[in-house]
Computed example of a mutant assay.
Amino acid sequence: MQPLPVRDRAGNALTGFRRISEGELEGLGGRDVVPAALVVVEYGGAVLLVFDAWRRKWELPGGGREPGETTRRTAIRELREETGIRGVGVEAVAVAGFHLVAPDRHELIAVYRARLRVAPRLLVNDEVLDFRWWPPSDPVGEDTSPLDAEIARRVARTPTA
């Protein structure tokens, strides 16, 4: 693990990472407080990274909350939309703090984990061009989000609830 903050080339920073229960996470507030969720999918000692079509980077699956949606529902929906993975359990493990630069803002992002026993069938789509299983002990390449990689490393070291 790296000390925080961890920055990417654009100046965005992962500024905090706090383990949290589902109840604590939902108690933080609605979309204005926690506007998005990420999912760390683990299988065989590796974490699933998706190649984002717009940002052209390897990153964790996830995205923004829709009106009335809990962070859990967001995590499940985004995982399905970006990967095709359905019907797996997700557990809340953390909230990550970010300082983002375009536009300048601070955000809290819900972080969930899904541990798979069987390799999933992954589906390329308009948002995600490719998939890769990345061992968190491996270095981060130039084409990988260092912020998401640090989150994945911290989640991989978090015991199951």
Rank of each mutant, 00 (worst) to 15 (best):
K57L: 15
E69W: 02
A10K: 15
P146K: 01
D130I: 04
L49A: 09
D8H: 00
E142P: 15
R19D: 08
Y43Q: 07
V88C: 01
A156N: 03
P146F: 03
R154F: 06
P61C: 12
G84Y: 05
V140Y: 04
G87H: 08
L25I: 02
L38G: 11
V47K: 06
R113A: 10
R19Y: 06
G27A: 11
G30T: 02
T71E: 14
E66R: 15
L79N: 09
E26T: 09
A152P: 13
S137T: 15
L4C: 09
A96M: 05
F17P: 06
T83A: 05
P136N: 03
G11L: 06
P135N: 13
L60P: 14
V34Y: 14
V118N: 00
R18H: 13
R86D: 13
R56P: 00
S21F: 07
I20Y: 09
P135D: 14
G89I: 04
A156K: 02
P67T: 08
A10Y: 14
D104S: 12
Y112S: 12
P3A: 12
P146T: 03
V6A: 00
V6R: 00
V41M: 07
K57T: 14
L116M: 04
P5K: 02
W133E: 07
D130H: 09
A161Q: 14
P5V: 08
T144C: 11
Q2T: 13
A36S: 15
G89T: 09
I85V: 13
S21P: 05
G84K: 03
L4I: 07
A102L: 14
A46G: 07
L122Q: 00
T83S: 07
R9Q: 13
E127S: 12
P3W: 02
R86F: 11
D52N: 14
G64Y: 14
G44R: 04
L38D: 15
G27Q: 02
E69T: 03
V6L: 01
W134T: 04
R72H: 12
E142M: 10
L49W: 13
A102E: 15
V50H: 10
E107C: 07
G29A: 02
E91Y: 10
D130M: 01
E69D: 03
R18W: 13
A75Q: 09
P159Q: 05
R113L: 08
P3C: 01
E42L: 12
E150G: 04
T158Y: 05
G87L: 08
A156Y: 11
A13W: 07
H99Y: 12
D32N: 09
R31I: 15
V41P: 05
V6D: 00
L14E: 01
D138P: 05
P136G: 06
F51S: 04
E59V: 15
V101S: 06
R86C: 12
G89L: 10
E22V: 10
D8A: 00
A119R: 12
R72D: 10
D8T: 00
L60T: 04
V111M: 05
G23P: 01
A149H: 03
